[in-house]
Design a protein around this nucleic acid. Structure first.
Lengths: 203, 203
DNA sequence: GTCATTTACTTAACAGTGTTAGATAATTTA
DNA sequence: TAAATTATCTAACACTGTTAAGTAAATGAC
């Protein structure tokens, strides 16, 4: 029954190919260009086949966001591991977050609903794999020592965390929509914001 | 030739009706529900008629964003006029910005490309009516005295302004996508962020 | 008032979308 | 080899934005 395994492996492969094809199409022609028939073309099948791997187009987008968050989490972990001091780690992580958004622009877009449909989608995500919940724990762990000697309540940490997140995400999305100001200015804003918040957190 | 005037007035009215109908449809069924045929239905015409008022669907969205920014600008002006101290004015304006985003959720979405298509659109906007350029002047005027006695360079003001904007917009969009945390927490974040930045600006 | 012209509006169609049902070809099982 | 299962495709449905051609109504000139 080794053939069963081979078939299962092939199925897993086309499942993956569908995602790859989708991302390729989006990278080439934007989110509007993404259609079931084009995906099918790319993987050399006809459209209905896709529905044996994903229940609908939304499921594909959902899987792409899942993939995106996994990648982001990996990047953040890597950034953290490059430093020892919590403050430095935090700074490196948010910088990595920023870099990810532009390196994987299309993924970031689907992750944070730069599209209405995705917006609805994000709300349908199972609690356990919510966007930033994965990273939340790590961040909180970092922020608490930074705020020492003051021992923050959970609420305090929460507020600081959301502020942090907002600054970065806001900067990114304004940059994407509003074609932002110069790259230098942007990086300046980013650094100012990060160090400013870290300073405001430091006890 | 008074009939000419009446006809022109009627035309202007249906032009407006198209926008109203669009907004109504979006408010009832989300951005996905918006279609030319549904708009036509709403204004009791057939679809092709719309193309005599707007060259395509994108033009309708563009006009909606324009309308949105005008409304926002009015709200901000009103908020400012309620205070005398620059710091208080600035705070009130950003609070008004926040309130607008949720009171006119659909407009805010089309304004800041919570949709890919809109994203592209925003880039096509004529320089003169760029999203925040209208408000820019007012903000800068406010920030300079706050930063006194230090006389900031244009770059410094720019960076502070962008930081401000990012915090608020980031908070809003994270809230919209990620169904945010509790309303109290959010308001806390908002106030913390606003007062924090104002404090960091104050010379 | 009649006729020609313009304007207002509709119907029909094209090419595309997501999605489903039914037919067909290929493979595996008995 | 025959039956049953699986893989795949074709055709269709109900939409989408958009355009071209046709029809009815209002307006103009004589």
């Amino acid at each position: 029954m080794a053939s069963k395994d081979r078939i299962l492996r092939l199925k897993e492969e086309t499942r993956c190919n569908i995602l790859d094809a989708s991302l390729k199409i989006v990278k080439e022609g934007g989110w509007d260009a993404l259609s079931m028939r084009k995906i099918a073309d790319e993987i050399e099948y006809t459209a209905p086949i896709i529905y044996e791997y994903y229940s609908n187009k939304g499921a594909i987008l959902l899987e792409l966001t899942r993939k995106g968050f996994l990648l982001l989490a990996k990047d953040l972990e890597a950034a953290k591991s490059k430093h020892r001091l919590p403050a430095k780690q935090l700074e490196a992580m948010w910088l990595a977050y920023w870099n990810f958004a532009f390196a994987e622009k299309e993924l970031y877009q689907v992750m944070y609903g730069v599209e209405t449909t995705c917006c609805e989608m994000a709300k349908k995500m199972p609690e356990s794999e919510l966007p930033m919940d994965l990273i939340w724990d790590v961040m909180v762990e970092l922020m608490t020592p930074i705020m020492a000697p003051h021992v923050p309540t959970e609420d305090e940490v929460c507020i600081k965390y959301y502020t942090f997140w907002s600054v970065i995400h806001g900067l990114i999305s304004i940059n994407m929509v509003n074609r932002g100001s110069s790259a230098e200015t942007n990086h300046e804003v980013l650094k100012t914001a990060i160090s400013g918040i870290i300073r405001s957190i430091t006890g």
